[in-house]
Amino acid sequence: MTDRLRIAVLGASGYTGADLVRLAITHPRMEIAALAANAKAGQTMAAIWPHFAPYPALPALVKADEIDFSGIDAVFGCLPHAASAELLSGLPGQRIIDLSADFRLKDAGTYADWYGVAHPAPELLAGAVYGLTEFARRSLPAARIVACPGCYPTAVLLALLPLVASHAISAERITVNALSGVSGAGRGLKEANLFPEVAEAVHPYGIGRHRHMPEMEQELSLRAGRDVTISFTPHLVPMNRGELVTIVVETAHGVDYLREVLADAYIAEPFVHLLPIGVAPATRMVRGSNHVVINVFADRVPGRAIVIAAIDNLVKGSSGQAVQNFNLMFGLPETMGLEQAPLFP
């Protein structure tokens, strides 16, 4: 097949990079031309990821500066913040799908405040498209840089944006409690992520100041037409992948109306699904897939409702959404390479 698009994956030794490779292997229009992981350069993917043993033709890992980008159509950045923008900003013109936080925030000062470093390429921020696919679809075909949202913002924003934009809920008091599998914390060696630390336990982190908060507030504010500040508390739970957000909102409308707003917003979406009345979203419904499940419930307190959404943090919350964006950037069917059903049990 001669019409394949050649891709490079930077940071292929991490969880998001490996899941990107997993999806790219069976994508009909992707050719994996280069895989980079500076600390693992010289090794094969199978050597560090045993599930790639059946794919010996995958390129060996190299350092990013060893890649010849002249023949690359698209670059997926699966690197940590700051390192991603520093490297990607030097590319000569390839289209970029970045999975780090580096191009999500439009204000370099906000980035510096939340990430503790000056932005490596502030001149690129204005032109980057925030790649929450369902709300960025029109901008993606012409985009050179697409910033894939964080996993928490993906779930939260898909649950809330239609409700905020239609003024179905108050933008003043939004409380989000979120649960994520341990893969959301990355593959680096951290004491807090060791098995004895996370097994049989749940713990909150980033309390009151998690780095995903400003991008959620940025996008909610754009839809609300005013500044929105949320309360957000993430928790790490003892599972490998998956994410569930429970959001308490205030509304002058009933739950049926909120469901109508979400149903209208997502009626034609291939990956976002409003569940039947009374069915609670669960991570087992979406594991290993690019699907999202959402539902709304009445709170016992009058004037409040509970919105719940579940995603796979490594697929729709990261690599799957990156492939979805890639498809639209290159004029391909949006679902290409993402048709796999959730894995259950």
Rank of each mutant, 00 (worst) to 15 (best):
A57E: 15
G337R: 00
G303W: 14
P149L: 04
S319F: 07
S89N: 13
T110A: 00
T26M: 06
A108T: 04
E219H: 13
Q94V: 15
V237R: 00
L236I: 15
N290D: 05
L244G: 00
G181A: 02
Y111M: 06
T110E: 08
G242H: 03
S84N: 04
V292P: 01
A39H: 14
H27W: 10
P204C: 03
R138G: 11
L332M: 10
R29W: 04
E172G: 07
R304F: 07
G242L: 03
I25L: 12
T335Y: 09
G278M: 11
I72D: 11
L220Q: 04
N295Q: 04
Y111R: 03
I247P: 02
A280M: 13
D102L: 03
D113Y: 12
A39Q: 12
F69I: 04
A108E: 06
P149S: 06
T26H: 13
A39P: 01
L105H: 05
L10M: 15
A74G: 07
A282Q: 11
R209D: 11
V156L: 08
P80A: 08
P141L: 06
A39I: 09
I207V: 15
S139C: 10
A265M: 08
D107G: 12
L91D: 13
A33Y: 08
M239E: 08
R6M: 11
R144G: 11
S180I: 15
M216Y: 09
P92A: 15
G186C: 01
S139L: 14
V249L: 00
R259H: 05
D68P: 02
V164A: 01
S84Q: 05
S139W: 10
I247H: 00
A112N: 07
A265H: 05
H235Y: 11
L23Q: 05
L158M: 12
M285T: 03
V279T: 12
F76R: 06
L124V: 10
R138Y: 05
G150D: 08
S13Q: 10
K190E: 07
R304D: 03
I32A: 01
M336L: 15
A322D: 07
I169F: 02
A41N: 10
G331I: 06
T251S: 14
L343V: 09
Q321D: 14
R241V: 09
K316L: 13
I25S: 00
R223V: 09
E197H: 13
P28K: 05
A33P: 06
